[in-house]
Write a protein that binds this DNA or RNA. Structure first.
Lengths: 248, 248
DNA sequence: TAGTGTGAATTGCTTCACAGCA
DNA sequence: TGCTGTGAAGCAATTCACACTA
């Protein structure tokens, strides 16, 4: 198995409360206690379910779904069990129902409004990415500091000057932001985003950002990913050499 | 703390052997037993060290480095201890030495040759990304199926037809590939890459790929990242509401 | 009977606290 | 004295095995 799994966890974990334990009459809903490792896999399941839905498959077993998602069947079942019991013993899971359940759990039934900051190739790639709209994300604003792109139209939106960031976020009531700018501009713009009351930032700049604890931050760095890949590929190369030596 | 950490782990972990335990005369080097969670953080440390190097800082304490990297000091020290003991008690770590050590551990002192498959916005963003060259990655080929881009020049390289993928990889002796193509084309091209003997694939297509066990695979999906971010931001939103209610 | 749901065992990561060293 | 390096403790995630049920 070479498929990497897992994904980012907050350093401080959320307390876990059994699903279905409605708060004692005083609270919103309940605080779901889904392990972060599970949350990180739910989007993958959603994607795999899409494949089944495309072929009008009505039910799917944990075995089949797990294979397509690249995880073990037991892990899949445990993950799904955190959302509640939506499978049928002896049969499997209803594709449609699972899609609904996972989407709701991830909050994708809400309408998330996203601004993209930085209209380079990466920003454009994101703006043109069709996967967003289909999952409840609307791009409601694009910003850049470069005057040669400000005013131009990208993905149906007019690029605005980054100086208008705060105003633009307030107007559009955006909750999430994608930062796709050079490293040296990232922290400054990040601070503006925080000041504008943004709830979460997805950072593509190759640097570590400082944000207050109430703002969610995720980091995606292309070089980092390649470095991790290279490490594992390097190990493999060494192992191959070793095996070659043994068999010779 | 809102900073997410961690990153992908292979489902099957490598056995861990103490560093310095040279194989019993029969093997290459030794098989280092660095936890995958640690490997995933090393690139971040490298980045943070770059900041210190830029200001000619010679030594750095675990406390300071950890802050810049967004992790706890104890975790940082434990991570570094897997590479060996390269700090000085009472003083700290030598910036230069740590950079060397981490780079070697990640295999960045090797020359990794990378091909980029898919020359859309994302592919171009990657081709133009300066962070690659500085870390031992050379982009040695670009491929696409779209005839309107084949033959054009991107980042100093001529885009070749994807039909020449196998030949191109062999010629250039590439070990790694970046897949930045639409989901429906990904598995087909992935198979070609595997057939051409590639060691590792970084997949940006929003789908799960199947590869043989000896090929390393990492997945980066923009929608997935946003979904995870939205989940956490949603929890925060609920908590805010709850807190607001309590205080009113 | 086939496949879910889940306690229990296991594995591996993180955190703590402090011994040891420059 | 200050800071690293690391056993040991504590937690979280994974895997196992099987009771349960449609």
């Amino acid at each position: 198995m070479s498929q990497p799994e897992y994904a980012e966890l907050p350093a401080v974990n959320t307390r876990r409360i059994a699903p279905g334990s409605a708060a004692d009459g005083s609270g919103i809903d309940e605080i779901r206690g889904i392990p972060d490792a599970t949350v990180a896999r739910l989007p993958v399941y959603l994607q795999a379910l899409g494949t089944f839905a495309a072929t009008d498959t009505e039910t799917v077993s944990s075995e089949d779904l797990a294979e397509l998602a690249g995880v073990g069947a037991a892990k899949l079942r445990k993950d799904l069990s955190y959302l509640g019991s939506y499978g049928t013993r002896g049969v499997g899971y209803s594709v449609g129902r699972l899609v609904t359940q996972i989407s709701e759990t991830l909050g994708l039934t809400l309408d998330w409004r996203v601004v993209i900051v930085g209209v380079g190739h990466l920003g454009r790639a994101l703006a043109g990415y069709s996967g967003f709209a289909s999952r409840g994300f609307s791009v409601v604003g694009m910003f850049d500091v470069d005057e040669s792109v400000v005013g131009s139209s990208v993905g149906g939106l007019t690029v605005r000057d980054a100086a208008e960031l705060e105003a633009g976020i307030a107007e559009a009531q955006a909750q999430l932001a994608v930062l796709a700018v050079p490293a040296d501009a990232a922290q400054g713009l990040c601070d503006k985003l925080v000041g504008a009351g943004i709830h979460g930032i997805l950072n593509f700049a190759p640097c570590v950002l400082q944000v207050p604890a109430h703002v969610q931050l995720r980091r995606v760095d292309l070089a980092t990913e390649l470095q991790i890949l290279a490490f594992h590929a390097g190990r493999r190369e060494a192992a191959d050499l070793l095996a070659g030596k043994v068999s010779s």
